[in-house]
Design a protein around this nucleic acid. Structure first.
Lengths: 298, 298
DNA sequence: TCGAGCAAATCAGTTCTCCTAATGAGTAAT
DNA sequence: ATTACTCATTAGGAGAACTGATTTGCTCGA
């Protein structure tokens, strides 16, 4: 059997993004962590971490990490079966990566019941679009919600449905930039709002409209803030329908190009050997995610 | 994370059926094994082994064992991915329980290619009929072939096909016991051959013919021996069609009741979280087991 | 009822793993 | 340069865990 003390150290270093913090989490000294990693590398015969800021697992390291992730999921099952095996440590949370918009809209509704029922704690990591898959590949998370269809090795991807985005702006903004109605070319000239550097929604929307080249945009890495900026007339942006129903109804935001929504399919990626709990969560999502999403068309 | 040194000790004790032998396998003293088990029980808060001959895992113990089994399967995958992680120990074999008749007939053909391709070593445990499932439940084996449809918790059962048995005896035996032809009632009076105490084939065959009550039988726990006994005229028995084609063709064995074969469905039980190797083996079997089996009808 | 034989538990002593603490070295920002 | 930060290295020591010897407990057979 592998030495899981060493693997746990590797996992802690990557998850905590540093030896020092990893040591704290493990209840050890920084030195001990360093030694464990070194010993692990000696056993494996090659480095498992690239010493950078933050430390990044090597190819081998990633494989080991996602093995650890899978074993942890199995352990979760058995700890549910065998009382008094809780290790005394803090109750482990299930780490899941998802995109900010999902978290801001349908996620809580969809998983709320399951978590209270099962007494399950989550550790949610917000990641733009497809970056969550990287975490998955590195074995840092048990599952993720993202836009990529292709599962990583050892995992499965399940289509949950699509999130419908609409291009919105405040009435004042529209009056100012589009006095003669909205056209694709003009849209590219008006300032936009973009969630983060990895957020390519607006880019995709514009290129779907046939507009090439760059455009000016604000960066605002907060879902709520995003809506507030749009309301304040700073720019136009693509917002999840679900999140802005009130603003639309009250007329604080208006649609630029009606009947041109953007549907973004969302996939649930989860380890194939994820144990019963993750399996149950997957089933639950399959049934309850649809409520907040539109049926996907490809 | 659980302490896998302790769990490995538990597994060794159960698999080797004793502390002493477990110690040898682990490269430790008997004393050390005893202490590990005790420590494990202290952690868990209750006994994991019933001290008997051989030691038997408790309910909790079985759950732990089959967790170990699943983790081992995952480790096998990663060891294939990460060279130089072989632990130096002896190459771990994949433990599989199956019934003697399968081993005597189609098994080798079905898995031969896969094993050589993948460089996979097997440790086969021969178990009568459904006893293999117990090994599965105890986490002692990674998979098993048996007649039960119902999978163990955490595992899947896959119908492979049916084995066709025919009731056969030597010409001399038939002439002696059934001079006027074979009838069900007379069959129950003639001595039978039964594989082992758990082998209920003949019982089922007779009760399917409407015969109630006991009958006289030899016990012979060897597939080859079984056929030899029948050839020698010691009794009649149900033999896999596959195994006795030569004897039938040569006239050394004859069918008692033509057109009354007994088809026994066989299922492949494997852990759901068994990793890629076990998954691949399962697929392989699904494709190649059929060759030696008749399509199952229910 | 009593030993013989065997398996596991216990105990005392020792080994050696693994940790801590202090220090050193490399890198980036000030 | 200096400071701040992170990780590596080293020596030394605590204690976990192993070994070997012995005891306990059980099962048979006489």
């Amino acid at each position: 059997m592998l030495d899981y003390k060493l693997l746990a150290a590797l996992a802690a270093v990557v998850e905590q993004a540093g030896f020092e913090r990893a040591a704290q989490v493990l209840g050890l000294s920084q030195s001990a962590v360093s030694q464990r990693i070194k010993l692990l590398e000696a056993r494996v015969g090659q480095p498992v971490l690239v010493r950078a800021l933050p430390p990044v697992p090597t190819e081998i390291g990633r494989r080991l990490l996602n093995h650890v992730q899978q074993v942890r999921l199995l352990e979760r099952d058995i700890q549910a079966q065998v009382p008094g095996l809780d290790e005394g440590g803090p109750p482990e949370r299930l780490r899941i990566a998802l995109n900010a918009d999902s978290l801001a809209t349908w996620w809580a509704q969809a998983v709320g019941g399951f978590c209270t029922e099962q007494g399950l704690l989550l550790e949610l990591l917000v990641e733009d679009q497809d970056v969550g898959l990287k975490r998955m590949r590195a074995g840092e998370v048990a599952a993720c919600v993202c836009g990529s269809e292709r599962p990583v090795a050892g995992a499965r991807a399940l289509l949950l449905g699509s999130m419908r985005y609409r291009a919105l702006a405040s009435p004042g903004f529209i009056a100012r930039y589009f006095p003669r109605g909205v056209t694709a070319a003009e849209l590219a000239q008006a300032p936009a709002i973009v969630f983060g550097p990895d957020d390519l929604l607006q880019h995709r929307y514009l290129s779907a409209l046939g507009v090439e080249g760059g455009f000016a945009y604000h960066l605002c890495p907060s879902s709520e803030g995003f809506v507030r900026l749009a309301e304040a007339g700073l720019g136009w942006g693509l917002m999840p329908e679900l999140q802005v129903q009130e603003e639309l109804a009250a007329g604080r935001l208006c649609e630029l190009l009606p009947e041109r929504p953007l549907d973004v399919p969302l996939y649930w990626h989860h380890w194939r050997s994820g144990g019963e709990l993750l399996g149950a969560l997957t089933q639950h999502l399959q049934r309850h995610a649809a409520a907040g999403l539109v049926a996907a068309k490809r």
